[in-house]
Design a protein around this nucleic acid. Structure first.
Length: 466
RNA sequence: GUCCCCAUCGUCUAGUGGCCUAGGACGCUGGCCUCUCACGCCGGUAACGGGGGUUCAAAUCCCCCUGGGGACGCCA
């Protein structure tokens, strides 16, 4: 059996689109699963763009997702002479010819055909002229006029297209730069790519490429065209549907394992399983279970997955991320042991790391500048709790150890003593300590805050009441 | 317009002719738990686009219709 070789060939747009990320993931999984190779290639035959800069966003996204590549990135812009060798070969074998028609003339031909209700395409005027190379001349592929071209697709099954539908596509532009379809085929042939998994939108390019493979006397790779990802309105996913860039999800506080898991399940499935680690993806991934129809990008489900991973990762893994997001919110560097203690209290509550940072704010705020929900303060920090706060302030100041169990014991003794129920103290205490009406459990929160902060915040609350 | 592809709950999907009075998950929703908010647990809601065939039997196979998507570039 030959080595499996897959590739991911984005054009340098500056960021990794979720659709692109998904096809990259599928190709990566297939290569890794089979002990093969995964190649990264930048399709930049479109000329003057600072590829280094534009490519970086894509590479960053790939690395963040954990999709490493074995070869590349190759740049098509640096392989022009290779493509031209192949074009010359096609010229020599009679599979291509020079054409002197101008773009305007070709456009006119297409309009004419369209008006007549026919397929809009080049009319083949220079096809049999045997023109020599010259300025203003392009090289065109001599496509078969009749019959049909078909190929087997691992997700779509057999696909065939009448050749009459196919155009004599341009292979080499006037400026000497080869076109996309030619470059892809040459790359895939020379890189010995065995499996081409890509978006549905390339399905209609495939017959043209198949013709090129045949003209070049090359065996066909396996094709697999995965359906498009749509927005909630069932239109092709675009910016107006919200975030489409992988990097944006990182900035929004999503974990790469959540994004990978979500993308994998979008258009692929393994029985009823929803949660997949990378290892599980590797063992279960199969081309046969790729979906056949377009799917809608559901941010709600991504969020659920992200919340799931936030719950299941270790505090050690999450604490540094929390530190980053806190810093973005203007907080100074926080002691990492403190953060690791905070994280477990927030894990069941945060959907994203950004949310976690918001929720962590009261932990790291300066005691004298604790952001206070004024409405809550007005409602709960009242004269009625003053006496309790005074007593508790004293008790808490001296008690030791200051951990959850001890605090619970202390409170139950106190409540019994004063003959009150916890409910009357809980919200006032919460507001005093966190500035908010919602927080993790009070005892665990107090333990993590620590004796000093708790006592100071209680004193501050007392000052407010007076 | 022409060609290609697609069609199960709102969404992601399981289903490869009988195991389907169609299963799971997100969402929504009722309840439990409870110091708030979450988590968690238990329950509910909701789908095979329509019409013809084939077959003892069809969500599953075939045809037509409808609907959706994509492609028709000297873009990739």
């Amino acid at each position: 059996m030959t080595t499996v070789i897959t590739r991911f060939p984005p054009s340098p747009t500056g960021h990794l689109h979720v659709g692109g990320a998904r096809t990259a993931l599928f190709n990566w999984l297939w290569a890794r699963k089979n002990g093969g190779k995964f190649i990264l290639r930048i399709e930049d035959t479109d000329a003057a763009r600072s590829t280094g800069e534009m490519t970086r966003g894509i590479l960053d996204g790939m690395r963040w997702l954990g999709l490493d590549w074995d070869e590349g990135p190759y740049f098509q812009s640096r392989r022009i002479s290779l493509y031209n060798e192949y074009i010359d070969r096609l010229l020599q074998t009679g599979h291509a010819y020079y054409c002197a028609c101008t773009p305007d003339e070709v456009e006119a031909m297409r309009n004419e055909a369209r008006a007549a209700g026919a397929v809009p395409k080049y009319n083949g005027r220079c096809r049999e002229k045997g023109l020599a190379p010259g300025p203003g001349r392009v090289v065109r592929f001599k496509a078969p006029l009749n019959g049909e071209t078909s190929f087997k697709d691992v997700v779509k099954g057999n696909v065939s297209v009448p050749n009459a539908q196919l155009d004599d596509m341009v292979l080499r532009r006037v400026d000497g730069i080869p076109t996309y379809n030619l470059a892809v085929v040459v790359d895939d042939v020379t890189m010995a790519v065995t499996h081409i998994i890509r978006g549905d939108d390339h399905l209609s390019n495939t017959p043209k490429q198949v013709l090129l493979y045949e003209a070049l006397g090359q065996a066909l790779p396996q094709f697999g065209h995965v359906p498009m990802i749509l927005g909630p309105d069932k239109k092709k996913l675009s910016k107006r549907h919200g975030a489409t860039s992988v990097t944006v999800y990182r900035e929004l506080g999503y974990l790469p394992e959540a994004v990978v898991n979500y993308l994998a399940r979008l258009g692929w499935s393994h029985k009823d399983q929803e949660i997949f680690s990378l290892d599980e993806l590797l063992t279960h991934f199969s081309l046969g279970h790729l979906g056949t129809s377009a799917c809608v990008f559901d941010q709600g489900k991504l969020l659920w997955l992200n919340a799931h991973y936030i719950k299941s990762e270790t505090p050690q893994r999450l604490a540094p991320l929390l530190a980053d997001f806190l810093q973005q919110r203007g907080h100074r560097e926080v002691n990492s042991a403190y953060l690791e203690a905070i994280v477990p209290l927030l894990q069941p509550r945060a959907g994203t790391m950004v949310e976690m940072a918001e929720m962590a704010e009261f932990f790291v705020a300066d005691d004298h500048r604790l952001p206070m929900d004024e409405a809550a303060a007005g409602k709960y920090l009242t004269a009625q709790v003053k006496e309790h706060f005074v007593s508790l302030h004293n008790l808490l100041q001296t008690t030791s150890p200051f951990d959850q169990a001890a605090l619970e014991a202390l409170f139950s003794r106190y409540l019994e003593d004063k003959d009150v129920v916890f409910k009357v103290l809980a919200q006032p205490l919460r507001v005093a300590l966190t500035g908010k009406t919602k927080s993790p459990g009070l005892f665990e929160t107090m333990e993590v805050l620590g004796q000093a902060r708790v006592v100071r915040r209680l004193a501050n609350a007392l000052r407010r009441i007076e």
